[in-house]
Design a protein around this nucleic acid. Structure first.
Length: 263
DNA sequence: CAGATCACCTGCTTGC
DNA sequence: TGCAAGCAGGTGATCT
């Protein structure tokens, strides 16, 4: 569910409520979201002061005075400030002012505490809004991978998911199954630019709400109204009017225009 | 290294 | 109407 713009929106909406707060106590109920010793995790958190909240790719990194709390929202994870405690509230953080709830029906998300930055985060690729065009073009063209799975690979680039990969490839007119090593320098540079523009615009619109994504105040995003191919199978291409097609690439539903995005 | 397949979960939609 | 199959914003293990 949540990709870079959604996670960024969550971080921005949750940070003012967390920074400077003390975690009085925490409790966890899912053996999937919080693998391992859940009581030990709660013990680590009790009494900790929150110094900062930031995004790394799709991870939410909460800096505590005793270590780092890393939260990944998976497909359906939500962080809610003073929200209602539903049947899928698998993490409860009681603060000295307010309550933070982690809600996740599918339980693909993860909440992990570590003294130092977790390996999963340390090995992420560059931030798409930070990497320069020449570095991106060089990295993209030096791989021999299908274009879309490469964009989804978090060790190549952190933060893109199924929606924004489709949207960026459409804007750059690259076929999702194109071989990255055979994409021209100019086209790869266009992809870099497309990624930047789309992510920036999506953040301005507070992310995409397909079904249930909401920020920490429970508000939906608006970027789904601006999707040009994602979720628009059969609708006319905004460029040429031919119907958008949906195919399977690397086991993921993939939306593209067969006329505008040549292989 | 690249790619396919499967697995982890719940819930909503689709099709017979 | 009812039920089973299929699909969903993600990631990682394993095998070829």
């Amino acid at each position: 569910m949540p990709e870079l713009p959604e996670v960024e929106t969550v971080v921005r909406s949750v940070a003012p409520h967390l920074v400077g707060r003390t975690i009085l106590g925490a409790s966890f109920t899912s053996r999937f979201v919080t693998p391992g010793d859940r009581d030990a995790l709660a013990a680590h958190l009790a009494g900790a002061v929150i110094h900062g909240v930031e995004r790394r790719g799709k991870f939410i990194v909460i800096e505590l005075d005793g270590g780092t709390l890393a939260i990944h929202l998976g497909m359906t994870g939500k962080l809610l400030v003073d929200g209602t405690r539903g049947p899928h509230a698998h993490g409860i953080f009681e603060l000295d002012r307010g309550t933070l709830i982690y809600d996740d029906p599918r339980q693909f998300g993860r909440i992990e505490f570590s003294e130092h930055l977790p390996e999963r985060i340390a090995r992420l690729g560059p931030e798409p809004l930070s990497i320069g065009v020449e570095d991106f073009v060089r990295a993209f063209r030096s791989r021999r991978s299908l274009a879309k799975p490469l964009l989804l690979n978090q060790r190549f680039l952190r933060g893109l998911g199924n929606i924004y990969a489709d949207e960026a490839l459409f804007q750059a007119r690259i076929h999702p199954r194109a071989n990255s090593s055979r994409v021209s320098h100019a086209r790869a540079a266009a992809l870099h630019q497309a990624i930047r523009e789309i992510l920036t615009l999506a953040i301005e619109h507070r992310g995409s709400s397909i079904s249930d994504y909401v920020d920490a105040q429970g508000e939906r995003g608006g970027f789904q109204l601006l999707h040009r191919v994602y979720g628009r199978e059969g609708e006319p291409c905004p460029n040429c009017g031919r119907p958008i097609r949906k195919i399977l690439v690397a086991q993921r539903g993939t939306h593209y225009c067969p006329a505008c995005q040549r292989a």
